[in-house]
Design a binder for these strands. Structure first.
Length: 576
RNA sequence: ACCCCGAUAGUGUAACGGUAGCACAAAACCCUUUGAAGGUUUCAGUCCUGGUUCGAAUCCAGGUCGGGGUGCCA
C-alpha cells in the first residue's frame, strides 16, 4: 500500500520554498554527465555567433541558455565568433554582438575567441587527415560536385580524384594554401562515404579556396575551412563539454563526431535544441538584413525589429528578455511563441521599475470654469506604487488642462466610467470634475470641455463619501511639455510571415501600420530631463522610453515599449 | 520517394512505468485614486491503431502529421 503523503513528507517544515522549475532536457543530460563523472563534473559551454548580422531574440535564447547553464552548474561560457567565411563577416557585427551580449547581462571574462584564431591548427589537422589517407584534394567543379553527390534517394559516386596518393594530396593542398589556384578550382574533402544516407557524410568539403580579405587574419589565408571542419575542433580546443546548437545541425552531428574522433582530440558533446520562433516577426538574419537594406525599417535597431538592439531602443530591459527566455523553455521540437509572452515579460519587469508619470497622448482641452483665474498649485504624486523608495513628486495643476480624448464620450455606454456630459470623474491626484459643456467645431468634432471642479475633493477624496468610479490622467496645459510619441504594432500582419499568397513573398505580410507617430502629445514637466535608459509608465497608457537616436532636447521623442493591459478595450471589442 | 528528428489544454512546457501539473492566453468575480498592478475561481490536453504490463503520455510495432537534410553558407 502506498501512502500518498510519503513523497511530500518534507512539507511540514513550514518553509515555503520557491517552486523550482523542473529540469529541461539539456540540464538532465548535464546532471547525468556530472553524476557519471564524464567531464569530472566540469561544465563548459560557448555562444558561437557568426558575425554576419545583428543578434536577435532567437540568439538571446541561445545566449541565456549557454551562459545560464554555465552559471547554474558553476562552469564557464565562452564567446566565440564563428568567422570562417570572410565574404559575409565584418567588424561592425563583431562589435555589436559583444555589446548586445554584455547588455543582456552576460560576461565571457577573458574568454573571447575567434574560430580564425585556430586557422593554423585547423590547417595542421587537415594535413594529418591527408596523411592518414582520410582527406583528398578534389578538382571537381562546384556543379560536378553536386552531381557526384547523388540525391536524397540515390547514392553519390566517388570523385575521380579521390584516390590520389598522400604525397600528391599534400603537395596540392600546399599549393592551394599558397594561392597557386584560382577560387573554386580545388577543394579539400574528407574521404568518408559517398553512399551514406546522410548527405553530410558524402565526402564533405573541408577547405575551399577564397581569395578574400578576412577581418582578422587579413590576407594571410586564401583557403578557408568550412563550418563542419571548424566548429567541433574549436569546441575541442576550448575543452567545451556541451556544445549546444539548434536543430538544423542535427544531421551534422555524425560529421562533428567523425572529425574529432579521426583527429583523436577531446570530444565535446553536441546537443541540439529547437530555435525560437516568435509570432508576427521574423528571425532570419537574411530577411532582417533585407528589411534594413530595403528601408522597411530604420536600421538594425529600429524599435520594431526583433533584434537585441531594436528591443533595447524600444525600451525592453535585459531582465525582461532573460525572464522571457527562461519561461519559454527548451525542447527538441519546433514551436512558435506568441508575441504576447515577450510583451508580458516586459510589463512584469517595467511594472516594478518604471517611474509613473502623467502623459496625454491625444490631448483634449478641458477648462475648469470655477477654478480661480491665474491660480496654480502643485500636487503630490506617487512615483512608483510598487516601490516605496521611489518617493513622490509634485505635479502642477491649473484651470486649463489636457485630458485623453478617449477619456470622454458624448454617448457613453453604461460601462464607461470616464467623463461624459453631466458626469463626474476623478482627476488622478487632483480633484473631481464634472462636465458641464461640450464645445464642438463646425464639423461636430469636440474641441473643448468646460467643466467645474469640486474644491472639497483635493487629492481625489470626497469628504461626503460620494463615489466616483472613474479616475483619469491629465496635465496642466500651461506647464505641460509637448513631445512626439511613437506607437508600435507588430512588424508583420500574419502570425507566420512566411505564409503567403501565391506569387507573393514574405514582404507582402509587412504591416503597413507598424509605426504610428503622434505629434503634440503633452506630458508633465518632470519629463524634461528624461534619459533613454529610464523607463516610464505614462499612467493608464503604457510604458515609454526616450528614443536614443532621434530625440532632441528641444524635440523629445518617446517610444512606447508596450501598452498597459487594456481591459476596457476588451470590453468594447466584446460588445461590438 | 530516401535518411534523421519530433508530436501532451488555444500557446509554451513538466511528469523519466504508478494522482496528467505549471505558466501565458481566455472567462467570471473581488479589490482599486492607473479599467494598471494584485487576489480568488473556472474552462481546457496525452496524434491514431494495435501490442507488452496489475498499471502506458512514458516501452514496442505500424500509421498519420510536422520539421530538417541534395551550399565550395553557418
Amino acid at each position: 500500500m502506498s501512502n500518498k503523503n510519503e513523497s511530500t513528507s518534507d512539507k511540514n517544515t513550514g518553509e515555503k520554498k520557491p517552486r523550482e522549475r523542473s529540469l529541461n532536457f539539456i540540464e538532465t543530460i548535464i546532471e547525468e554527465d556530472n553524476k557519471s563523472g564524464k567531464h569530472d563534473g566540469r561544465v563548459h559551454t560557448r555562444f558561437p555567433p557568426e558575425p554576419n548580422g545583428y543578434l536577435h531574440i532567437g540568439h538571446a535564447k541561445s545566449i541565456c541558455l549557454n551562459f545560464g547553464l554555465a552559471k547554474k552548474y558553476n562552469g564557464k561560457c565562452n564567446l566565440r565568433f564563428d568567422d570562417t567565411n570572410p565574404t559575409k563577416e565584418n567588424e561592425e557585427y563583431v562589435r555589436s554582438i559583444q555589446e548586445d551580449v554584455r547588455w543582456l547581462g552576460f560576461d565571457w571574462e577573458d574568454r573571447l575567441f575567434y574560430a580564425s584564431d585556430y586557422f593554423e591548427q585547423l590547417y595542421e589537422w587537415a594535413i594529418k587527415l591527408i596523411q592518414d589517407g582520410k582527406a583528398y584534394v578534389d578538382e571537381l567543379t562546384a556543379e560536378q560536385t553536386r552531381e557526384y553527390r547523388g540525391t536524397l534517394t540515390e547514392p553519390g559516386k566517388n570523385s575521380p580524384y579521390r584516390d590520389r596518393s598522400v604525397e600528391e594530396n599534400l603537395e596540392l593542398f600546399e599549393k592551394m594554401k599558397n594561392g597557386e589556384f584560382p577560387d573554386g578550382s580545388r577543394t579539400l574533402r574528407a574521404k568518408i562515404d559517398m553512399s551514406s544516407p546522410n548527405l553530410n557524410m558524402r565526402d564533405p568539403v573541408m577547405y575551399r579556396i577564397m581569395h578574400a580579405h578576412h577581418h582578422r587574419t587579413g590576407d594571410t589565408w586564401c583557403i578557408y575551412p568550412m563550418y563542419d571542419f571548424t566548429h567541433g575542433q574549436s569546441d575541442s580546443i576550448e575543452k567545451i563539454t556541451h556544445s549546444i546548437c539548434t536543430l538544423e545541425f542535427e544531421n551534422h552531428r555524425p560529421l562533428y563526431d567523425w572529425y574529432v574522433e579521426n583527429l583523436g582530440i577531446f570530444h565535446p558533446q553536441q546537443i541540439e535544441f529547437a530555435r525560437l520562433n516568435l509570432s508576427h516577426t521574423i528571425t532570419s538574419k537574411r530577411k532582417l538584413l533585407d528589411l534594413v537594406t530595403e528601408k522597411f525599417v530604420d536600421g538594425w535597431n529600429d524599435p520594431r525589429m526583433p533584434t537585441i538592439s531594436g528591443l533595447r531602443r524600444r525600451g525592453y530591459t535585459p531582465a525582461s528578455i532573460r525572464n522571457f527566455c527562461d519561461r519559454i523553455g527548451v525542447a527538441r521540437f519546433n514551436s512558435t511563441i506568441e508575441m504576447s509572452w515577450l510583451e508580458e515579460a516586459v510589463r512584469e519587469d517595467l511594472n516594478r521599475t518604471a517611474l509613473r508619470v502623467m502623459g496625454v497622448i491625444n490631448p483634449l482641452k478641458v477648462t475648469i470654469t470655477n477654478y480661480p483665474e491665474g491660480q496654480e498649485e502643485w500636487r503630490d504624486a506617487i512615483n512608483n506604487p510598487e516601490d516605496k523608495e521611489a518617493g513622490t513628486r509634485k505635479i502642477p495643476f491649473s484651470g486649463e488642462l489636457y485630458i485623453e480624448r478617449d477619456d470622454f464620450m458624448e454617448d457613453a455606454p453604461k460601462k464607461f466610467f470616464r467623463l461624459k456630459p453631466g458626469g463626474e470623474v476623478r482627476l488622478r491626484y487632483g480633484y473631481f470634475i464634472k462636465c458641464e459643456e461640450v464645445i464642438k467645431d463646425d464639423k461636430g468634432v469636440v474641441q473643448e470641455l468646460r467643466c467645474t471642479y469640486d474644491p472639497e475633493t483635493a487629492g481625489g477624496k470626497a469628504p461626503d463619501g460620494r463615489k466616483v468610479k472613474g479616475t483619469i490622467h491629465w496635465v496642466s496645459a500651461k506647464h505641460s511639455l509637448p513631445i512626439t510619441v511613437r506607437l508600435y504594432d507588430h512588424l508583420f500582419t500574419k502570425e507566420d510571415p512566411s505564409e503567403v499568397e501565391e506569387g507573393q513573398d514574405w514582404r507582402s505580410n509587412i504591416n503597413p501600420h507598424s509605426l504610428t507617430v503622434l505629434e503634440n502629445c503633452q506630458v508633465e514637466p518632470s519629463l524634461k530631463d528624461a534619459e533613454p535608459d529610464q523607463p516610464y509608465q505614462f499612467e493608464r497608457t503604457g510604458y515609454f522610453c526616450l528614443d536614443s537616436k532621434d530625440s532632441l532636447p528641444e524635440h523629445p521623442v518617446f517610444n512606447r515599449t508596450v501598452s498597459l493591459r487594456d481591459t476596457w478595450a476588451k470590453v468594447q471589442k466584446k460588445s461590438k
